[in-house]
C-alpha cells in the first residue's frame, strides 16, 4: 500500500516537478547518437531519461497495448502517422529528427568497393539486410538492389536480421560477408570505421525519414516536451549529423 502511495505521489508530482522523468522508445539504429544526446540532455535539463531501444514495429504493438512510453523516436514516418491517426499521439507534435543513410558494409577491409560493384559479382554467400517488412533500412536495401538490377540474383542469398542491430551483428561476426546497415552503426570520425563500405547515394532509395512523436501518455509531461524541443536544437543536430544522419 505504501509503495502504491509513493507511486501515485510520483505520478502526480511528475508534471510539475523540476526534475522530471521521460520514458523514451528509441529506434535501434539511433542507439549510438541517443546515448550521447541523453547524457547531454540530462546534464543540461536535470531530467532523467529512461531509454528503450528496439524495432519500431514492436514499439507500435507495445504502445497500442499500454506501454508507458511518452516519446517515440521512430525509424520511419509511417508508424508515427499511424499512431497519430489512432489517437495514441499528440497532434502536431511529430517532426523529422533525422534522415537515415544506408551503407553496404563488410567487416572485411578488402571486400566492399566504393560503388557497390561487388553486388554484381560472386565470392560471397550471404547478404544481410534488416527485415524489409518491418524495418525501413531493410526496405531501402531492397530498393537499392532493385535499382541496381541485382535484386533477383541476390534473393537466394539474403538473410534477415530482426532489426538493424541484429543485421549489423550478422556482418560483424563474419557470418554474413556483407550487408546493408545504417551509416550511424559503422561511422567513426565522419567516415566508415572498421571494415569496408559503400555509402549509398540517396537516389538509390526513398528517403528514410525518422520522425519523433509525443505520445498521449507524455502529453502532460513537461520534460517530454523539453526533450523534443532539445532534439531540434543546434547542439543536438550537430550530434545527430556527426553520427552520419542528414537533417531535413
Amino acid at each position: 500500500m505504501k509503495r502504491l502511495g509513493y507511486l501515485l505521489l510520483a505520478l502526480f508530482a511528475l508534471p510539475s516537478a523540476d526534475a522530471g522523468e521521460v520514458q523514451v522508445a528509441v529506434a535501434a539504429n539511433f542507439t549510438g547518437p541517443m546515448q550521447v544526446l541523453a547524457t547531454l540532455f540530462e546534464r543540461d535539463s536535470g531530467h532523467q531519461l529512461k531509454l528503450s531501444y528496439g524495432a519500431t514495429g514492436k514499439f507500435y504493438a507495445q504502445i497500442k497495448n499500454g506501454a508507458p512510453f511518452e516519446v517515440l523516436l521512430a525509424a520511419d514516418d509511417q508508424t508515427p502517422a499511424r499512431l497519430l491517426a489512432e489517437g495514441s499521439g499528440v497532434a502536431g507534435s511529430n517532426f523529422i529528427y533525422a534522415i537515415g543513410k544506408l551503407v553496404l558494409w563488410s567487416s572485411d577491409p578488402q571486400r566492399v568497393d566504393g560503388s557497390g560493384e561487388i553486388l554484381k559479382k560472386d565470392g560471397f554467400r550471404h547478404v544481410a539486410i534488416a527485415n524489409p517488412k518491418t524495418a525501413p533500412y531493410g526496405r531501402a536495401a531492397i530498393e537499392t538492389m532493385s535499382k541496381m538490377g541485382v535484386a533477383e540474383r541476390l534473393a537466394p542469398r539474403l538473410v534477415q536480421g530482426e532489426n538493424i542491430a541484429q543485421t549489423h551483428q550478422f556482418i560483424a561476426t563474419g557470418a554474413a560477408e556483407l550487408g546493408f546497415v545504417a551509416y550511424s552503426q559503422v561511422i567513426k570520425n565522419g567516415r566508415i570505421g572498421a571494415g569496408s563500405g559503400w555509402l549509398i547515394p540517396p537516389h538509390f532509395y526513398s528517403p528514410i525519414r525518422q520522425e519523433a512523436l509525443l505520445l498521449a501518455r507524455g502529453k502532460n509531461n513537461a520534460a517530454a516536451s523539453e526533450l523534443l524541443a532539445y532534439l531540434k536544437s543546434a547542439k543536438a543536430q550537430a550530434v545527430i549529423e556527426s553520427f552520419g544522419y542528414a537533417l531535413p
Binding site: G57, A61, N131, K133, T134, V159, Q160, G161, E162
Partner: peptide, 26 residues
C-alpha cells in the same frame, strides 16, 4: 533460431519467427 537462422523463407523461418514477423508488421 532468429539469430542463427536469419529468417529465410522455407529454410530457416520457423513458426515462432513467423509469428514475431506478423506481429512486427502489424
Amino acid at each position: 533460431v532468429l539469430m542463427i537462422g536469419g529468417n529465410i523463407p522455407d529454410k530457416t523461418r520457423v513458426v515462432s519467427v513467423l509469428i514475431y514477423d506478423h506481429v512486427e508488421a502489424m
